[in-house]
Computed example of a mutant assay.
Amino acid sequence: MTSDAHDFSQGAAFVEGRYVPAREARVSLLDWGFSRSDVTYDVVHVRHGGFFRLEDHLDRFERSLAGFRLAPPYSRAEIAAILDRCVALTGLRDAYVAMICTRGRPRVFGSRRPADCDNLFSAYAIPWIDVIPLDVQARGAHLHIASVTRIPAASIDPTMKNYHWGDLTRGLFEAHDAGADTAVLLDTDGFVTEGPGFNVFMVRGGEVLTPDRGALEGITRRSVLELCAMTGLPARIAPLRREDLMQADEMFCTTTAGGVMPISRVDGHIMSNDAPGPVSLRLKELYWQKHAEGWHRTEVNYAAAETVTVSPAA
Score class of each variant (00 low, 15 high):
Met1Lys: 09
Ser3Thr: 12
Gly17Asn: 03
Tyr19Met: 00
Pro21Ile: 00
Ala22Arg: 13
Arg23Phe: 12
Leu30Gln: 13
Trp32Met: 05
Trp32Ile: 03
Asp38Val: 10
Asp38Glu: 09
Gly50Cys: 15
Arg63Lys: 14
Arg69Val: 11
Pro73Ser: 04
Arg76Leu: 10
Ala77Gln: 09
Glu78His: 06
Ile79Leu: 10
Ala81Gln: 08
Ile100Asn: 02
Cys101Ser: 06
Cys101Asp: 07
Arg105Ile: 15
Arg107Phe: 11
Val108Met: 14
Phe109Ala: 13
Gly110Val: 07
Asp118Pro: 04
Leu120Gln: 15
Ala123His: 05
Ile126Arg: 04
Ile126Gly: 14
Trp128Thr: 15
Ile129Lys: 08
Ile129Tyr: 07
Ile129Trp: 05
Val131Ser: 13
His144Arg: 03
Val148Leu: 09
Ile151Lys: 01
Pro152Ile: 00
Ala154Ile: 13
Thr159Cys: 13
Met160Ile: 15
Trp165Cys: 02
Thr188Gly: 13
Pro196Thr: 11
Gly197Glu: 01
Val200Gly: 06
Phe201His: 02
Phe201Gly: 04
Val203Gly: 03
Leu209Tyr: 03
Leu209Glu: 04
Gly214Phe: 02
Ala215Arg: 14
Gly218Asn: 05
Ile219Thr: 09
Arg221Asp: 03
Arg221Ile: 03
Ser223Gly: 08
Val224Pro: 00
Gly232Val: 05
Gly232Ala: 02
Pro234Leu: 01
Ala235Asn: 02
Pro239Ile: 06
Pro239Val: 04
Leu240Gln: 04
Arg241Thr: 10
Ala248Met: 03
Thr255Gln: 09
Pro262Val: 08
Asp267Arg: 01
His269Glu: 00
Met271Gly: 01
Ser280His: 03
Ser280Lys: 00
Lys284Pro: 11
Leu286Lys: 07
Trp288Ser: 11
Trp295Phe: 12
Trp295Leu: 01
Tyr302His: 07
Val308Leu: 11
Pro312Asp: 05
Pro312Leu: 05
